[in-house]
């Protein structure tokens, strides 16, 4: 498939209606967030720190409760899917179990669903092959580089064959080279597996390169200020990074993002 796997007729996978999140210390992390995400979209949540982008992602995953409003994922209230296997989550750090091998780390989601090592082997191997780490199944996380650890984390998220992949600033701690390589790998996964991806980032360039849609958020209180659809018919390659279209889109998104910063006390 050369064109993107979503279309105007695709059903809503995620629906957020007027969602608030207030933490117990009184901080309003998110106010009145409404958003629909269709199946097959690649959506970036872009914004300064404190804009509630990670909070929104965790609420969609069901890891944080909703203070007001409602979130449905695939028709179910967030966090109440059958067994969590239709969502993959990639954290900011690789978040691997240091005592377990790469294989055992990737096996974990299946193990928690009662699938033994022998039964799961094929799927774990498949997930490791997906991220190019087939030769490292018996390694321990500490033996791997940061980029490789992040790949393991992605393999673990993909091993349940989810429809929805949630990524919380996954590559923020990596060097530029590794980062752009992993960006391409995530794009390839998105296309080949018909995924829906929500990608939290504070990098304009990353969001423009990856997404079919950028949701720009502002802080204090966290809210959505722009919802920018991007042209999806251009192949995202190294050439795209050099193109004027890319530069112009980055400028447009950048301007939208700067608009959110005017009221923010930068010394905070």
């Amino acid at each position: 498939m050369s064109t993107l796997p979503h279309g105007a007729t695709a059903p809503d996978l995620i629906d957020m209606r007027d969602v608030d999140k207030v933490f117990s210390n009184g901080t309003i992390a998110l106010r009145g967030m409404s958003l629909s995400i269709k199946q097959g979209e690649f959506v970036s949540f872009l914004g300064p720190s404190g804009c509630g982008k990670s909070t929104a992602l965790k609420m969609i995953a069901g890891l944080l409760s909703v203070s007001k409003g409602a979130i449905t994922v695939n028709g179910h209230p967030a966090g109440q899917s059958r067994d969590g296997s239709d969502i993959g989550f990639v954290f900011q750090e690789a978040t691997l179990m240091p005592w377990a091998t790469v294989f055992d780390n990737v096996h974990l989601p299946l193990k928690l669903h009662g699938l033994g090592k022998a039964e799961a082997r094929e799927r774990v191997d498949e997930a490791l092959a997906m991220v190019g780490l087939s030769n490292f199944a018996t390694s321990y996380p500490r033996e791997l580089s940061g980029g490789m650890r992040m790949r393991v984390s992605i393999a673990r998220a993909m091993v349940t064959r989810p429809k929805l992949l949630l990524m919380d600033e996954p590559f923020a701690a990596l060097d530029e080279m590794t980062r752009s390589k992993l960006n391409d790998e995530v794009l390839a996964l998105w296309k080949s597996h018909g995924l829906t991806v929500i990608f939290v980032t504070h990098s304009v360039f990353e969001s423009v390169y990856l997404s079919s849609r950028v949701v720009v958020m502002a802080a204090r209180p966290g809210r959505v200020v722009h919802d920018i659809p991007l042209a999806t018919d251009i192949p995202r390659t190294a050439d795209y990074r050099m193109s004027t279209t890319y530069a112009e889109t980055c400028k447009q998104v950048s301007t939208a993002l700067e608009g959110t910063m005017t009221h923010v006390d930068l010394n905070h």
């Binding site: 965790k58 890891l63 067994d83 969590g84 969502i87 954290f91 974990l108 928690l112």
Partner: peptide, 20 residues
């Protein structure tokens, strides 16, 4: 974050104790 992972995959209390 690992705790969150176990919650996401709806681990039982016993699994959480044993594996995490």
């Amino acid at each position: 974050n690992l705790r969150d992972m176990f919650r996401l995959y709806q681990a039982t209390p016993w699994q959480r104790l044993r594996y995490l």
